[in-house]
Lab assay of single mutants.
Amino acid sequence: YETDHQDYCEVCQQGGEIILCDTCPRAYHLVCLDPELEKAPEGKWSCPHCEKE
């Protein structure tokens, strides 16, 4: 399936195990989030940028 999400972390610009925001195209490593997450959230997730909106 096709997605318009970026394939690198918004914070460190590296690829790998990233989680995708359900609201925007941004993607993040769990450890690059502040506060960092230990595991990917279940269900819908909005990144810090979208949470501020």
Results as ranks from 00 to 15, higher is better:
residue 1 Y to R: 12
residue 1 Y to E: 15
residue 1 Y to F: 09
residue 1 Y to V: 13
residue 1 Y to M: 15
residue 2 E to K: 15
residue 2 E to M: 15
residue 2 E to D: 04
residue 2 E to N: 15
residue 2 E to R: 15
residue 2 E to C: 15
residue 2 E to Y: 15
residue 2 E to P: 06
residue 3 T to W: 14
residue 3 T to L: 15
residue 3 T to E: 15
residue 4 D to Q: 15
residue 4 D to T: 10
residue 4 D to W: 10
residue 4 D to V: 13
residue 4 D to H: 09
residue 4 D to G: 10
residue 4 D to S: 08
residue 5 H to G: 14
residue 5 H to K: 11
residue 5 H to D: 01
residue 5 H to S: 15
residue 5 H to N: 09
residue 5 H to I: 12
residue 5 H to M: 15
residue 5 H to V: 15
residue 5 H to P: 13
residue 5 H to W: 09
residue 5 H to Q: 09
residue 6 Q to G: 04
residue 6 Q to Y: 03
residue 6 Q to E: 06
residue 7 D to M: 13
residue 7 D to C: 02
residue 7 D to S: 04
residue 8 Y to C: 03
residue 8 Y to Q: 15
residue 8 Y to F: 05
residue 8 Y to M: 13
residue 8 Y to R: 14
residue 8 Y to E: 15
residue 8 Y to H: 15
residue 8 Y to S: 10
residue 9 C to I: 01
residue 9 C to F: 00
residue 9 C to L: 01
residue 9 C to M: 01
residue 9 C to G: 02
residue 10 E to K: 14
residue 10 E to M: 09
residue 10 E to I: 14
residue 10 E to D: 07
residue 10 E to R: 11
residue 10 E to V: 14
residue 11 V to C: 14
residue 11 V to L: 14
residue 11 V to P: 12
residue 11 V to S: 15
residue 11 V to N: 10
residue 11 V to W: 09
residue 11 V to I: 08
residue 12 C to G: 01
residue 12 C to V: 01
residue 12 C to T: 01
residue 12 C to I: 00
residue 12 C to L: 00
residue 12 C to F: 01
residue 13 Q to M: 10
residue 13 Q to K: 05
residue 13 Q to R: 13
residue 13 Q to H: 04
residue 13 Q to L: 07
residue 14 Q to A: 08
residue 14 Q to L: 10
residue 14 Q to N: 09
residue 14 Q to C: 03
residue 15 G to W: 07
residue 15 G to S: 11
residue 15 G to M: 13
residue 15 G to Y: 12
residue 15 G to A: 14
residue 15 G to R: 13
residue 15 G to H: 07
residue 15 G to C: 11
residue 15 G to K: 13
residue 15 G to E: 07
residue 16 G to H: 15
residue 16 G to D: 13
residue 16 G to L: 14
residue 16 G to Y: 14
residue 16 G to W: 10
residue 16 G to R: 12
residue 16 G to N: 15
residue 16 G to I: 06
residue 16 G to Q: 14
residue 17 E to W: 14
residue 17 E to G: 09
residue 17 E to L: 08
residue 17 E to Y: 11
residue 18 I to C: 02
residue 18 I to E: 03
residue 18 I to Q: 15
residue 18 I to D: 06
residue 18 I to V: 04
residue 19 I to M: 14
residue 19 I to F: 11
residue 19 I to C: 07
residue 19 I to N: 13
residue 19 I to H: 13
residue 19 I to T: 15
residue 20 L to S: 14
residue 20 L to D: 13
residue 20 L to M: 15
residue 20 L to F: 12
residue 20 L to V: 11
residue 20 L to P: 14
residue 20 L to Y: 14
residue 20 L to C: 09
residue 21 C to W: 00
residue 21 C to N: 00
residue 21 C to Y: 01
residue 21 C to D: 00
residue 21 C to F: 00
residue 21 C to E: 00
residue 21 C to A: 02
residue 21 C to R: 00
residue 21 C to T: 00
residue 22 D to I: 06
residue 22 D to E: 08
residue 22 D to A: 13
residue 22 D to S: 05
residue 22 D to K: 06
residue 22 D to Q: 05
residue 22 D to W: 03
residue 22 D to G: 09
residue 22 D to N: 10
residue 23 T to Q: 07
residue 23 T to N: 11
residue 23 T to V: 05
residue 23 T to M: 13
residue 23 T to I: 07
residue 23 T to F: 13
residue 23 T to C: 06
residue 24 C to I: 00
residue 24 C to P: 03
residue 24 C to A: 01
residue 24 C to L: 01
residue 24 C to H: 03
residue 24 C to V: 00
residue 25 P to E: 04
residue 25 P to F: 04
residue 25 P to T: 12
residue 25 P to Y: 08
residue 25 P to G: 10
residue 26 R to Y: 07
residue 26 R to I: 09
residue 26 R to A: 10
residue 26 R to C: 10
residue 26 R to W: 06
residue 26 R to K: 12
residue 27 A to S: 07
residue 27 A to N: 11
residue 27 A to V: 05
residue 27 A to Q: 14
residue 27 A to L: 05
residue 27 A to I: 10
residue 28 Y to H: 06
residue 28 Y to M: 07
residue 28 Y to L: 07
residue 28 Y to C: 10
residue 28 Y to D: 01
residue 28 Y to T: 04
residue 28 Y to F: 04
residue 29 H to N: 01
residue 29 H to P: 02
residue 29 H to M: 02
residue 29 H to D: 03
residue 30 L to M: 12
residue 30 L to N: 09
residue 30 L to Y: 14
residue 30 L to V: 07
residue 30 L to F: 09
residue 31 V to W: 02
residue 31 V to N: 06
residue 31 V to P: 13
residue 31 V to K: 04
residue 31 V to A: 09
residue 31 V to I: 05
residue 31 V to E: 14
residue 32 C to P: 00
residue 32 C to W: 00
residue 32 C to H: 01
residue 32 C to V: 02
residue 33 L to S: 14
residue 33 L to F: 10
residue 33 L to C: 04
residue 33 L to Q: 12
residue 34 D to F: 09
residue 34 D to E: 15
residue 34 D to R: 07
residue 34 D to N: 03
residue 34 D to M: 03
residue 35 P to C: 04
residue 35 P to I: 05
residue 35 P to Y: 11
residue 35 P to F: 00
residue 35 P to A: 06
residue 36 E to W: 04
residue 36 E to K: 12
residue 36 E to M: 12
residue 36 E to R: 03
residue 36 E to T: 09
residue 36 E to C: 09
residue 36 E to G: 10
residue 37 L to N: 08
residue 37 L to Q: 06
residue 37 L to A: 07
residue 37 L to S: 14
residue 37 L to W: 02
residue 37 L to Y: 05
residue 37 L to V: 10
residue 38 E to H: 05
residue 38 E to D: 10
residue 38 E to F: 09
residue 38 E to K: 06
residue 38 E to L: 07
residue 38 E to A: 10
residue 39 K to D: 05
residue 39 K to V: 06
residue 39 K to N: 12
residue 39 K to Q: 05
residue 39 K to C: 03
residue 39 K to M: 14
residue 39 K to G: 11
residue 39 K to R: 05
residue 40 A to S: 11
residue 40 A to Y: 05
residue 40 A to V: 10
residue 40 A to L: 09
residue 40 A to F: 15
residue 40 A to R: 09
residue 40 A to N: 14
residue 41 P to H: 12
residue 41 P to S: 13
residue 41 P to D: 08
residue 41 P to A: 12
residue 41 P to C: 03
residue 41 P to K: 07
residue 42 E to Y: 08
residue 42 E to F: 03
residue 42 E to L: 09
residue 42 E to G: 07
residue 42 E to N: 07
residue 42 E to W: 04
residue 43 G to T: 14
residue 43 G to Q: 08
residue 43 G to C: 07
residue 43 G to A: 06
residue 43 G to V: 11
residue 44 K to L: 10
residue 44 K to D: 14
residue 44 K to G: 12
residue 44 K to V: 07
residue 44 K to I: 04
residue 44 K to R: 13
residue 44 K to T: 10
residue 44 K to W: 05
residue 44 K to Y: 02
residue 45 W to E: 06
residue 45 W to V: 10
residue 45 W to I: 07
residue 45 W to F: 09
residue 45 W to G: 08
residue 45 W to P: 08
residue 46 S to F: 09
residue 46 S to G: 10
residue 46 S to E: 10
residue 46 S to H: 06
residue 46 S to K: 04
residue 46 S to W: 07
residue 46 S to N: 09
residue 46 S to T: 11
residue 47 C to R: 00
residue 47 C to E: 00
residue 47 C to A: 01
residue 47 C to T: 03
residue 47 C to S: 02
residue 48 P to Q: 08
residue 48 P to A: 10
residue 48 P to G: 12
residue 48 P to L: 11
residue 48 P to N: 10
residue 48 P to C: 11
residue 48 P to D: 02
residue 48 P to R: 10
residue 48 P to V: 09
residue 49 H to G: 12
residue 49 H to T: 13
residue 49 H to A: 10
residue 49 H to D: 15
residue 49 H to I: 01
residue 50 C to V: 02
residue 50 C to E: 11
residue 50 C to D: 02
residue 50 C to L: 02
residue 51 E to T: 12
residue 51 E to M: 03
residue 51 E to L: 07
residue 51 E to G: 08
residue 51 E to A: 07
residue 51 E to K: 11
residue 51 E to D: 07
residue 51 E to S: 03
residue 51 E to N: 12
residue 51 E to W: 05
residue 51 E to R: 03
residue 52 K to C: 03
residue 52 K to W: 08
residue 52 K to Q: 02
residue 52 K to H: 14
residue 52 K to I: 00
residue 52 K to P: 02
residue 53 E to F: 15
residue 53 E to R: 03
residue 53 E to M: 03
residue 53 E to W: 02
